[in-house]
Amino acid sequence: MKVNPELIVRAGLTLLNEIGLEQLTLRRLAMDLNIQAPTLYWHFKSKEQLIDAMATLILAEGVPALLPRKKSADWRSWATTFGHGLRQILLHYRDGARVVAGSRLTDTTYMEATERIGTRLIEAGFSTRNAVVLLSTVYTFTVSFVLEEQAVFPTRGQRSPAYNLAERNARLDPEKFPLMRQSATILFDRFDQRYKESLKLILGGAAETRIP
Rank of each mutant, 00 (worst) to 15 (best):
P5S: 05
V9F: 00
V9Y: 00
R10A: 06
R10D: 11
G12C: 01
N17R: 04
E18Y: 05
L21N: 08
Q23A: 15
R28I: 01
D32L: 08
N34Y: 04
A37Y: 13
A37T: 14
L40Q: 13
Y41W: 12
Y41P: 14
F44K: 13
F44Q: 05
K45W: 03
E48N: 07
L50T: 04
I51L: 03
A53Y: 01
M54T: 10
M54W: 07
T56S: 03
I58H: 06
L59N: 06
A60S: 15
L66V: 06
L66S: 14
P68V: 06
K71F: 13
S72C: 11
S72F: 06
W75T: 00
R76E: 15
S77C: 14
H84M: 03
L86G: 05
Q88K: 12
Q88W: 02
I89R: 05
Y93L: 08
A97C: 07
R98A: 15
V100D: 00
A101P: 00
R104S: 12
L105I: 04
T106V: 12
D107Q: 08
T108A: 10
E112R: 08
I122E: 13
E123R: 06
E123H: 07
E123I: 00
R129V: 09
R129C: 08
N130L: 14
N130S: 05
A131T: 04
V132D: 14
V132W: 10
V132I: 12
V133P: 11
V133F: 09
L134S: 11
L134I: 03
L135P: 09
S136D: 07
S136W: 08
T137P: 07
T140I: 08
T140S: 14
F141Q: 03
F141E: 07
T142N: 10
V143D: 04
S144M: 11
F145Y: 14
E148K: 08
E148S: 09
Q150A: 08
V152M: 13
V152D: 04
V152P: 07
V152Y: 11
P154E: 01
T155N: 02
T155A: 08
P161S: 06
P161V: 04
L165N: 04
R168D: 05
A170Q: 02
D173I: 14
D173G: 15
P174R: 10
E175L: 10
P178W: 02
R181W: 02
S183P: 00
A184T: 15
I186R: 15
R190E: 14
F191Q: 11
F191Y: 12
D192S: 12
D192E: 09
Q193R: 15
R194Q: 05
R194T: 06
Y195H: 10
K200I: 02
K200M: 10
K200T: 13
L201D: 09
L201S: 10
G204W: 05
G205M: 09
E208N: 06
E208Q: 03
T209F: 15
R210V: 12
I211D: 11
I211W: 13
P212I: 13
P212M: 06
P212A: 15
